[in-house]
Amino acid sequence: MAAAAAAGAGPEMVRGQVFDVGPRYTNLSYIGEGAYGMVCSAYDNVNKVRVAIKKISPFEHQTYCQRTLREIKILLRFRHENIIGINDIIRAPTIEQMKDVYIVQDLMETDLYKLLKTQHLSNDHICYFLYQILRGLKYIHSANVLHRDLKPSNLLLNTTCDLKICDFGLARVADPDHDHTGFLTEYVATRWYRAPEIMLNSKGYTKSIDIWSVGCILAEMLSNRPIFPGKHYLDQLNHILGILGSPSQEDLNCIINLKARNYLLSLPHKNKVPWNRLFPNADSKALDLLDKMLTFNPHKRIEVEQALAHPYLEQYYDPSDEPIAEAPFKFDMELDDLPKEKLKELIFEETARFQPGYRS
């Protein structure tokens, strides 16, 4: 834990890192770190609560700039109880001085990944967590956004079992017609939660990839272990087919990539493993919904509104309290091709509203 900075004593240090967030945020305490930044909790002297502050230093890398800009653009436009918001952003007053960006968010005690390492969940908890994931996802999908990296560590939890989806750095506007060349190379989302079509096709992607990830998360809540822990690309596919069985001819016809289709045709026939054999203690309604989410063919996979209306979630289902976005989200430009200098300018502009004396 960093010592509390005395008023006016300059930035606090946390594990050798400068955290320049005073005077409003003090009493910093280390939480963890990701690929390009550290997260601390801090005391907000204005709202009198502890908050989470993520320090991001992305400006050396085009990919990190892209992810940072995506996350900020999306989260500043989203407003939903099951999606983490941005409360404040701290950065230098000029673009030349801006080396880091500090993002202030609600402090959540833990995440689903940490929880599943230590606790076996009751059916009631599984049901409530799944409902909140789908409630947040309904809003995301209504904005025409794909999260693309749903996994237990991106689901934040607090002691009252509130759940918030975080990390929109890989999110995209849904565009089933656009052929994202190089899709697989830039697709760094965790393999275990990846839909089979991501490994088999490169053309376009749809909201059904997020539903697949939610199915993987439900299976993990039922058993405290990942359902498809593939060691590499082909191993991942083999794990999936080992449980779902061989795809039907109709399902194979959806695979545009001939090499991928021929690979699947070359494999020995596998039978589907019954879900109640894998999860003998699970609620039968939970397994019915799991089956509809972990469907090989993305066109037959359940959609988020149908999933919310499934009998497993009937005690929570309330369409009048499951809000959607006001308007579909649009990125003005494809960020993939922009140089990091341009992305830095866009991050600077996007964060201006939090600067003292800002006038829109």
Rank of each mutant, 00 (worst) to 15 (best):
D162Y: 14
N201L: 07
D251P: 02
R172S: 07
E314A: 04
G8T: 06
R50H: 07
A9R: 13
L163M: 10
R301Y: 07
H147D: 10
I53P: 00
I72R: 08
L252T: 05
Q315G: 02
S29C: 14
G245C: 15
F59L: 15
Q306H: 14
L222S: 06
V104R: 09
G215T: 08
L200Y: 11
E60A: 14
L155F: 07
L157P: 13
I209F: 14
E96C: 03
L150G: 09
D44F: 09
G34Q: 00
D283R: 03
P93K: 07
E220H: 08
V104A: 01
S142M: 08
L75E: 05
D291Y: 15
G230W: 02
L267W: 00
D336E: 14
R24A: 02
H178L: 15
E220M: 08
D179T: 09
P229L: 10
V304I: 09
K292Y: 06
N82D: 10
V39L: 13
P328A: 08
L134W: 07
N257E: 12
N123L: 09
L346I: 10
P319I: 08
I227C: 09
A189L: 12
F348A: 08
E81L: 09
G16H: 10
W275S: 10
R148E: 12
A282V: 04
R277P: 04
C40H: 00
N27T: 10
M221F: 06
L338S: 10
P176I: 07
S208M: 09
I56H: 11
S153N: 11
T68M: 03
I227G: 03
K270T: 05
L335G: 13
Q66C: 12
V18W: 04
A4K: 03
A2G: 13
A195K: 03
H269P: 03
L137Q: 15
L265D: 09
R50F: 05
A195M: 01
Y113T: 05
G16W: 00
I95V: 08
P356R: 04
F296G: 03
R359N: 02
C161I: 06
E303R: 00
Y205M: 12
G22M: 07
L335A: 11
S153P: 00
T26N: 14
V214I: 12
H310I: 05
Q236E: 08
Y36C: 12
I72D: 03
V173C: 03
H310V: 06
Y205I: 04
M293C: 02
R77H: 03
F168D: 01
Q62V: 10
I211A: 13
L157D: 12
M199S: 07
R70K: 08
V39I: 05
R67I: 00
F228A: 00
L157W: 09
K300T: 08
E197Q: 09
G10Y: 12
H80E: 02
S248E: 06
A171K: 09
V49Y: 07
Q132A: 09
E197M: 07
G182D: 04
D235M: 08
T63V: 06
S142P: 07
M108E: 08
V18P: 08
M221Q: 05
L157S: 13
G357I: 00
P280F: 12
I243H: 05
F129C: 05
A327V: 07
V51W: 04
D332N: 14
V49E: 15
K138L: 11
C161E: 12
P268F: 01
L200T: 11
L335C: 02
E349R: 04
Q66M: 10
L244W: 03
M98V: 00
Y312Q: 11
H180L: 15
Y64F: 15
R148T: 07
V304Q: 12
P176T: 15
S208Q: 05
K292C: 09
H120S: 04
C166P: 10
H147S: 10
E314R: 01
E349C: 02
A327K: 05
T190D: 07
L278K: 03
S223D: 12
Q66R: 11
Y263N: 15
I240M: 08
Y43A: 04
E341I: 01
P298C: 05
K344C: 03
F348K: 12
F129L: 15
F19M: 11
V49I: 04
Y43V: 07
Y131T: 00
V188E: 08
P58I: 02
E303C: 08
H147A: 07
I209N: 14
